[in-house]
Design a protein around this nucleic acid. Sequence first.
DNA 1: CGGCGCATCGTACCCAGGTACAGGTAGGGT
DNA 2: ACCCTACCTGTACCTGGGTACGATGCGCCG
Lengths: 225, 225
Amino acid sequence: MMRRLDTPALYIFTADETVFHRIREMGALADGRWNAQRLVRPIELDNLPVGSLVMVDIAHPQRPEWSDSRWRTWAGHLSIIALSSQPQDDEGIAAMDVGAAGYCHAYANEATLRQVVEVVSSGELWVGRSLLTRLLKGVNHNVNENAGQGTAARIATSPTQAWRALLTERELEVATMAAQGASNLGIAEVLGITERTVKAHLTSIFDKLDVADRLQLALKVHGVK
Amino acid sequence: MMRRLDTPALYIFTADETVFHRIREMGALADGRWNAQRLVRPIELDNLPVGSLVMVDIAHPQRPEWSDSRWRTWAGHLSIIALSSQPQDDEGIAAMDVGAAGYCHAYANEATLRQVVEVVSSGELWVGRSLLTRLLKGVNHNVNENAGQGTAARIATSPTQAWRALLTERELEVATMAAQGASNLGIAEVLGITERTVKAHLTSIFDKLDVADRLQLALKVHGVK
DNA sequence: CGGCGCATCGTACCCAGGTACAGGTAGGGT
DNA sequence: ACCCTACCTGTACCTGGGTACGATGCGCCG
C-alpha cells in the first residue's frame, strides 16, 4: 500500500536475461522488497537519480573498460554493485578501485544478494570473504603463503571447505574426482573398486552434503553454491 | 536443505555495562532476534559451542594482546566480532589479522550492528568503509607478492570467458542456467519454451564448446577446466 | 559380546539427459 | 529468389546416473 513508496529502485545493467530475472524475482518476494529495473545500454546509467543503487554485470559486452572515466563519474552519484559470474580477487579490486561500492557473484544466493544490497544501500562497502581476506594479507606482507595445507588453525576455516570435514577419506577421493567430471566407471578403475561401490560412496556423499547429484556436488566443491 | 533457524545466541565479552545492555536490547527487539549473553572473563570464551557468534570489546581490561595465541584458537571455532569504541584502521587490521570475522564500532547504530551480525553469521567478513577503503588503496601501491609474475595490467581481463563469444544470446542463457545446476525442464519453464528446445540449445552448446555434458559445461563456465 | 561406522559388492529398476532424424518459422545477406 | 543462421518443436531411442533393497567383512568401543 503506502509501503510501495519506500520501495527502493534497483537498476540492473546486464545483457544476461537470467541474471536480471533472478534478481528481480528476489526483490519481488515478501521481505526483500526492491523494485528491479533493467538497463541495457551504458548511456542509461548517466541519467539515473542521484544515490540510485545500480548493479553492473561486468560480463556485459558493452561494459566500459576499467580505465574508462565513466566509472568514476557514475560512482560519484550512484551506488554501484559489480556483479561477476566468475569472481576473482583482481577483478574485484579493479571494480572497487573505480568506485564500486560492492563486488559479488552474479549468481549469489538470495540471502547473500540481499545482504549486499542492504549493506551497500546503507552506505557501506561490500566485498566477499575471499577478497577481503586477501586484502588483509596484503597489508601484512609477511604472512606465510603456504599453499599446502595441514596447519589446523588457519583463519577460520573457509566456508567452502567445510564440507570436507563431513566426508571420510575414501568419500573425499570419490567426491573430488566426481566433481572434476569423472564418470563412475572411470573413478572405479582409478581406485581399483567396482562401479557399484563408487555409486555407494556417492550416495553417501550426496546424503552428507545435502546435494541431489554430481553436478550439484561439483558446484559445492568448487564453491559456486 | 533443512537449516536450523532456532535462537541464535550472541555472546558479548565486555566490561562495559552500557555496551552489553545496548546490544542486548537490540536483540530483544522484534526483527533482529538474537539472544545476548554476557561473558566477563576470557576463560569463558574457551568452552563455547563451535560456531558461536562472539562480540569482543577490545577495551576490556583483560582482553588478550594481539600477539596472544588464544585469539587464533578462538577464531578456529568461533565467529568473532571485535568491538572498538574508537575504531582505527590499524586496530581493525590487527583484529582481523588474528582471525576476527568483523570489526566495528562498539556504539554503532542498530541498523549497522544488525548488519554486522547478519553478515558475519552468514560466514562473510565485515569491516567498515574506512578500513576497507584503506585496504583497497594499499593494494594498488604495492602490487607484487601475488601470482608470482606480471605486476602489469593483469587486472581487468578475466581469463576464460572466451567461450561466451561462441554462443548466441539464447544459448548463453541456457548455458548459464544449466551450469548453475538447473534441469532442462526448469530452464524450459523459466524461458517459456519446450524442454525439447532446451535440449536442442544444449546440443548446440556442447558442440560449440566442445564438451560432452552439462557437468563439463559447468566446469568450463566456472573456470575449473 | 553386540552394535556401529566404514568399505565393499550384487541385482533390479527408474528416469533425466543426451542423441538421431525429422521438421517448422523468421530475418538478413547475396 | 536463394541461402544461411537463429530459434523453435516433435517422436523415438539409448545410456549413465541414481535409488531401493539387499549382502559381506573389518575394526573399534562401551
